[in-house]
Design a protein around this nucleic acid. Sequence first.
DNA 1: GGCTCGTGTGAAAGCGGTTTCAGAAGTGAT
DNA 2: ATCACTTCTGAAACCGCTTTCACACGAGCC
Lengths: 335, 335
Amino acid sequence: MQNRPGRSPRITINDVSTAAGVSPATVSRVLNGTAKVDSSLVDRVHDAVRKLGYRPNAAAQGLARGEWGTIGVLVPDLANPYFPDVLKAVSSVARAHGRRMMVMESDEDPAVEHDLVEDLMRCCDGVLLCSPRMPRAELAELLSREHPMVLFNRVVPGLTVPSISVDFHGGMTQVCGHLAQLGHRRAAYLSGPSASWANAERIRAFEGARAFGLEVNVIECGAGSQAGYDAVGALLESEVTAILTYNDLVALGALSRLNELGVSVPAQYSVVGFDDISLDRVAHSNLTTVSVPRDELGRRAGEILEQLLVNGYDADPLYLPMALHVRDTSGPPRR
Amino acid sequence: MQNRPGRSPRITINDVSTAAGVSPATVSRVLNGTAKVDSSLVDRVHDAVRKLGYRPNAAAQGLARGEWGTIGVLVPDLANPYFPDVLKAVSSVARAHGRRMMVMESDEDPAVEHDLVEDLMRCCDGVLLCSPRMPRAELAELLSREHPMVLFNRVVPGLTVPSISVDFHGGMTQVCGHLAQLGHRRAAYLSGPSASWANAERIRAFEGARAFGLEVNVIECGAGSQAGYDAVGALLESEVTAILTYNDLVALGALSRLNELGVSVPAQYSVVGFDDISLDRVAHSNLTTVSVPRDELGRRAGEILEQLLVNGYDADPLYLPMALHVRDTSGPPRR
DNA sequence: GGCTCGTGTGAAAGCGGTTTCAGAAGTGAT
DNA sequence: ATCACTTCTGAAACCGCTTTCACACGAGCC
């Protein structure tokens, strides 16, 4: 942008204004349509703009307008198949409102998360914080900055902040209901990251499941297919008849291991995924699972943020429902 | 950022300077370490910064420095599993050099692509253009803007622009060699989008494959697993013994259909993927395929862009090699 | 024909930083 | 004690755009 050596000098609004024989103010008015301008001048400005190939400098605009025209999104892991769909929707909403999308990734590290958010606040009108890992106190501190911010997949009791989440609790409740109805009485849950709110929400559903007559014991596992693969062996000595999982990846890993061990599904064990990461369209695994409306989630999140920027937004945390998909990996318990 | 109603006023460098009893210039010097400042002043500045919670305004810095501290990435489709890994690597490199990453998505639409690039050029130091779909002339026009830009997965003969791609031609050549060596003589290729450079590169390999004694006929198909599923039926009447694909998704779709039809793989047909979208870790499909080094690709792309921004970069298009992974879906041809 | 009023335009003051430039101290040599 | 030279600091210009404010001009009215 600066006249770096060998680079053509930037064309500014002043170049345009002299070329068109008008003041910079008029150029600005024409380009932004903020005031009526004589049509002959309008033409001259447009001609000059075209001839010079002028593009307004976004930083200068941001500075003068007090708005960046940008929203920031922080995700824990870009490579997590969960987020692209969300980002896609958020980006699309943002663009519909004339804003760009800045993306940062914390690499699941709560420590860097804080810095990244601060950085985003320096260059974005609003921030969408996806599944933040940081401790509640830090989060509260960031929220106190009065910078527009929306929380995604984390609800912090006591903090009033716009937030949108998936009703993981409801989703897991559906899973439990489905299994209970099939006749299962004892199940195991291959648990995800223990610090995670999303995991806690799933586990919370098991209390209610007792009412269905289903007892679920929680087993430390992890979030990837390898974790599922590794965890499943230990279960086979127990008397559980169904395996619940933190997400589809874990379930696929578990299925793969069961398959290797010659254990048939769902005859001997039912396996149910949790659709953080829908892969059925490619994996053709026909996994029974519950699905997250990822695009709607992203869209709504984007809209809430936009509304927050324009009018202010003040509503209770929004929970989007999950949908149960019964396919081939769940069935009645073995005798 | 502006004093919007109900929002706390922004803290500027002037607030800090008065609080610390120094000039704004000194605050700037302390914060950027651009000049030596008396240590007592340094402390006072830091205290004031901390007490006030000051954060420099990125737009103002960008304007004054003539650099945004941001790179832009344009991808055709965020939800395409190809890109998250790339974005992840690019973002990581960018951050290592103190830059943020702005992401835009063209939704595979060449028309909007042009506008988005222009927008990116207005707010980013450099732009990484992933698999641009736009016609050559438009691309040339954008490149003539002398704005730092790197091309990803598209090589435009005659245009000198830093670019990095995957050696699709070499990858497909490996596939052909592998099949020829197994004894295959006739194969079909389920072709991807016909306008795509990446697809053309794959097809180009089939000429060389004749030298191995392998004849490949190209069949219009598409890029998704559904396309593969749909396309495979028509092949079974032909005398081909191997099915090559545009990508793994197509291959998985084809496998799924073959499985339904009771056709055994690789006994009756060999199926080979093309690893745009590695899913083996989750799908456990054991597909023979060639892999793209996505993270290295992203990393190198980021580094090239960075180098371009700092020193200028002038090198021939870089092609990263693919690697053949022989697994369970390829074998000798049926008799 | 003079006066008010409404309209379109330009000059200039920001927006919040960085950087140049010149001046004030402080240092060492003569 | 004076002078030349560094070093550090602050004032002010500047980055490129928006927006306020004041002014000039023409229309409409009495």
